[in-house]
Design a protein around this nucleic acid. Structure first.
Lengths: 227, 227
DNA sequence: ACAATATTGGAACATCGTTCCAGATGTGTC
DNA sequence: GACACATCTGGAACGATGTTCCAATATTGT
């Protein structure tokens, strides 16, 4: 068996078109951003890099690792941008950053939900966790509080991403939400779903980002009661 | 077709093995529960029903519709079990029900995140929403509050489901979490990730359900400050 | 210059969701 | 009972995907 050991790239320059995990991940992100999750195939990726599938597998174990690396690349930039603000504002800033990243790269949302303990998720957990001391949260509650924030962010990310996946790209977000609302209202009885019908009305004039941050504020308010 | 006859059944009675969407969904749930998400293929489903793929497509449009129907079937039973308790307890009860359903059928978590506006999700939203009046939440904040609860539940569901997908089925949940914790601790610096390292320690002795409900309590506490 | 290793490109494989269609089954009419 | 028609079934076939395999090429070490 030939050694499968990974060669370190030493100091010598190589051919300028040499593949690398970084170049592959960048190409993958470009495809994901431009054409969406379903467009990322090893054939499309190989074509984009002017190579074959086998060459890509030399640098990347499988598609899952590729997606994780892509998601990490996007999220790490956001969270490491650590602000030295007051605790509540810092939490809001981190959440905002994650939201914006997912807004710009909708596929990230789905990926974060797929693998727990993934570095991107831990990065977010770390970012939130470090702020809890400043809120006066006792240590025994800090893990629960940070988890709640992370799970809320991931759930929101999933819903948002799923929306983007369905939206035929033609409609704006508000137009799209309006269509979802009317379709749902038509199909379900207002008597058995009183709340959902009121919610559908608000859906038309709501702003995703505002609603997301309102949820963060609710969580922060709840966390502040832990003492 | 080479007469693979069931004509030799004898009795001219109406065939007892007639397909229906309900029977198909039940068979799908059985496969999902027993062997996990990746085991549900149209070939396996056809074999389980002793028929062909084409026959299934006569009753079900595609795999997505099948998964939605399966998830709806599981969730609807849980939420419609509406309790007439006080608001905070009712919210806790609904969340518990969803958690238990996903605990028993891990694949449901992933499915709920895939399609927004799905009936199962709206059912949960309705369940939470109806309790908010009792908490004294002003109408303009009710949609945000209910959304926060739903997004938190879905995020938690996703994390929990993802864990079940990775776990090789051999280990118990605690053992599995311990392994995740040590692997992460070994790979990452305690200096740059102080909080995550403390969290990893707690991960070993934590209970998923308790942590999930702790998050619900945080949200309820935060929602109660909206007046 | 030569051997050994690292990397590439693309053919080949197994599997999946889905489509297609010939035949079997059921229903209504005389 | 015989015929026509719509409903339903079973399985072969299609196109696409992730992945593996391997002969060919590029790079490195001596």
């Amino acid at each position: 068996m030939a050694g499968t050991g990974r060669g370190e790239q030493g100091g010598g320059e190589r051919r300028t078109d040499a593949l690398s995990k970084e170049r592959i991940v960048d190409a993958a992100i470009a495809i994901l951003d431009a054409q969406g999750e379903s467009a990322l195939t090893f054939r499309a990726l190989a074509a984009s890099l002017a190579t074959g599938a086998g060459a890509i597998y030399w640098h990347v174990a499988n598609k899952n690792e590729l997606l994780q690396a892509a998601a990490d690349a996007v999220i790490t930039r956001v969270v490491s941008d650590e602000s030295t603000r007051e605790a509540p504002a810092a939490i809001r800033a981190i959440a905002s950053g994650v939201f914006d990243a997912i807004d710009a790269h909708p596929w990230v949302g789905g990926q974060l939900l797929r693998e727990p303990g993934q570095s991107a998720v831990m990065e977010i957990l770390e970012g939130f966790g470090e702020q809890l001391e400043g809120l006066g949260v006792p240590e025994r509650d800090q893990f629960n509080a940070a988890s709640a924030l992370v799970n809320y962010v991931l759930g929101s990310a999933g819903q948002f991403t799923a929306g983007a996946r369905i939206n035929p790209e033609g409609l704006g977000r508000t137009e799209f939400l309006a269509r979802v609302a009317t379709r749902w209202t038509e199909r379900h009885d207002a008597a058995t779903y009183p709340f959902a019908h009121r919610a559908a009305a608000q859906l038309r004039e709501h702003d995703d980002r505002e609603q997301f941050l309102a949820g963060i504020d609710i969580l922060v308010a709840g966390i502040s009661t832990l003492r």
